[in-house]
Each structure stands twice: as structure tokens, then as C-alpha cells.
Amino acid sequence: MKIRLVTNGVFTPIEEIEVAVKAPSDGFYWIDADVEDLGLLQALFNLHDLAVEDCLTEEEQRPKLEIYENQYFLVINSIRFDDEEIFLRALNIFLGRHYIITVTRTKIHELRSIKPILLEQEVNRADRFLYHLVDTVIDNYFVVGDRIESRIESLEEDILMHTKKAHLTEIIGLRSEILWLKKMLGPQRDVIATLNKKDLRLIDDQLQKYFGDIHENAVKIYETFETYRDLMGNLREAYQSSVANRANDIMRVFTALTTIFMPLTFITGVYGMNFDYIPGMHDKHGSIVLLIMMAVLGFGMFYFFRKKDWL
């Protein structure tokens, strides 16, 4: 657990957690904690039992905002994409008048990347910290969205150039991830809308208007992933069409080869019969003539099929 006094964006480490219980003369306290620290934090900051229970559960939490007497409990999801799977990591936030507590199970990139933003903007209030944190989390969705779009385009090109069975597995897996993510984006969009529209006494009225801009971005993200879902459906159709075309090409080649060998098989069948009187049977050059005739016939049919673009 790390305790910091934030004053105009400048961080001052605090050793004793008890110091953060009382409001500082200037700035606010940011407590970056793990789930193991919740017992101590609950006793000191009177965290609500239901909020602590939500933090401790290992099941995925839907984004939400709970309003308690002296604090707000907010759950939003940070996103990460490693080109194979989409990961959502719950970011649990307790917002008080003079403090903000972030609780996570794993390290979240946005908590590190927000530090220079706080310094640049000279953040001096906990509600402004919340605004910049939520804004950073939502902006990261656009970065991940661009990577997913690039992956879809690359996958589409691979399918058109050389279709593989592995492509179908990847399409199904990525589409499932996008559908699952889309289900989480809806509640998250609604939570940000609440931060923008509902009367919240722990958030400055002027600052609430800025949450409207974040809400617009959340709506864009939701619509973007809706588009990705449709693209994955189109990609699956393209894969099936490519497989069907490939099968048709193979069958066309086999059919053409069978057609070429049909007359050759007929000729060899006739000259393989046990009759005494077959044209050219007793000619000493008969076999050579027959082979030349079969070769001319075969190559002639092959040339004809190539000219017709059947092969």
C-alpha cells in the first residue's frame, strides 16, 4: 500500500496511514492499495461492507457507482489487449472529501501513467484526480480499439491470401472477446453518464460538466466495438466463402484432369482387349504412334482447358 499527499500535482510519500484519516491543510491523500489492505482501510475510513465485499470477490464486477453517506464507491474496468485476448481489470475507487482510495488485484497501467498528468494539471482535489483517472482509462480503450482494428484488417488479408483452419478459431475467439467486452461497456457508459448528470456533492459542479466529454468518448467506444462485432461476422463469412472457393477450385482441377484422362483411358482399354484384329496392333511402329496420339490428345485438351481458364 502506498500513501501519498498530493498537493498541486506534487507527490509527498506518507509513512503512516493514520495521518490520512484527517484532512490535510492543502491537497488530498491518494491511497493506492491492494485487496489485502482493505481490512485496515475499512476500519480507518469506515468503508461500507458491501463495497469491501465487491472488492474482495474474485468474480468480474460490472461497472457501477454506489453512493454512501460520506464516500462514493466506483468500479470501472481498465482494458488490455495482447493480440490474442482482451483483459478487463477492475479498478475499485473510494472517493471521499479529502482522499481517494484505489484498490486493485493486479497492477494497472493507468495508475502509473496518470502521475505526469496530475503534475501538469496541478491537481489539488480528489474529485479532479477521479476525473483524470477515468479519462485516462477511457482514452486507453481507443488505443486498444485501434490495435483490434489492425488485427481484424491483418486477419482479413491473411484469409484472402491463404486461408487456414487456424483462422476460424481466431475469428471465433476474437468475436467472443468483443461480444463479452461490449456487455461491459454498456454499464460503464451508464456509470459515466451518472457522474455527468446526477447531483453529487463530493464532485464539484463545474467539474461534472467535464464528465460529459468522457461520456461522449464512452459512447463512441461502445459504437466502435459494435462495429467490430459486425466486422467479425463479415470476416467469418469471408472465411467460409474463401474455403468454399478453394474447394471449388480443387474440384475444378480434379474434374478437368479426369476429363483429360477419360479418352486416354478409353484408348488404353481398347488396345488392352484380347482381339487379334485391332488397327495398328501388329505394326512395329504402332505403339509409338499410339503414344504420340495419346500425348497430343492429352496436351491438346490441357491447352483447351487453360485457354478457357478452367485450369
Rank of each mutant, 00 (worst) to 15 (best):
S242A: 11
A218P: 00
D82F: 09
A51R: 04
H285G: 06
Y239K: 04
G272A: 15
L47W: 06
M293D: 03
Y29C: 09
D213G: 04
L185T: 04
Y239F: 13
G280M: 11
K183H: 14
T224F: 07
L264W: 06
F261H: 08
I101E: 00
N217A: 10
S287M: 14
D26L: 09
E110M: 01
R246I: 07
E157P: 00
M293C: 15
D158S: 10
N274T: 14
L95G: 01
T12A: 15
T227G: 12
A295K: 05
L155W: 06
I267A: 06
H132R: 03
Y271W: 12
K182G: 03
N274I: 15
L119E: 10
I76F: 02
E16M: 04
K182S: 03
E16R: 13
L235K: 02
H98I: 02
T57C: 13
I100L: 05
E16P: 00
N217C: 05
D230N: 01
G186Y: 11
L207K: 04
T106H: 04
I172A: 09
D82L: 12
V10T: 13
L95S: 02
H162M: 09
G280E: 13
E69L: 12
N248C: 06
I250C: 07
F225T: 01
M262I: 15
L38D: 01
T227I: 13
I114T: 02
T268S: 11
V21T: 10
N92K: 02
T268W: 10
K209D: 11
I17G: 01
T57F: 06
G269M: 11
G96R: 00
I79Q: 00
S287R: 12
W180N: 08
Y68V: 05
F225I: 01
G300F: 10
A126F: 06
S150E: 15
K209T: 14
I221C: 14
I76A: 02
T259C: 01
G27E: 05
L133C: 00
S150C: 06
N70T: 13
E85G: 04
K165T: 15
C55V: 00
E58Q: 13
V253Y: 07
D158C: 06
K115R: 14
F129W: 08
F299R: 06
R229K: 14
E59K: 08
G39M: 09
D32M: 09
A90P: 00
K209H: 15
G96Q: 05
L257S: 06
E85H: 04
V75W: 00
E170S: 15
N70S: 09
I138K: 02
H162W: 07
V289M: 14
I288G: 09
L155F: 04
H162F: 13
E120F: 00
D26A: 13
T255L: 05
L181M: 02
V103T: 06
R62N: 12
P263Q: 14
L297M: 15
N234D: 09
L168N: 02
Q208K: 14
M273L: 14
Y239W: 05
G186H: 11
F299L: 06
L38C: 02
H167P: 03
R189A: 03
E157D: 10
H48V: 10
H167M: 13
R306K: 15
Y210V: 01
S176E: 08
S25Y: 08
T102I: 05
L168F: 11
N140F: 12
M1Q: 09
I292C: 09
P116V: 10
R128P: 02
H215M: 11
Q206P: 00
R62P: 03
P116A: 06
T57Q: 15
V191I: 11
E69N: 15
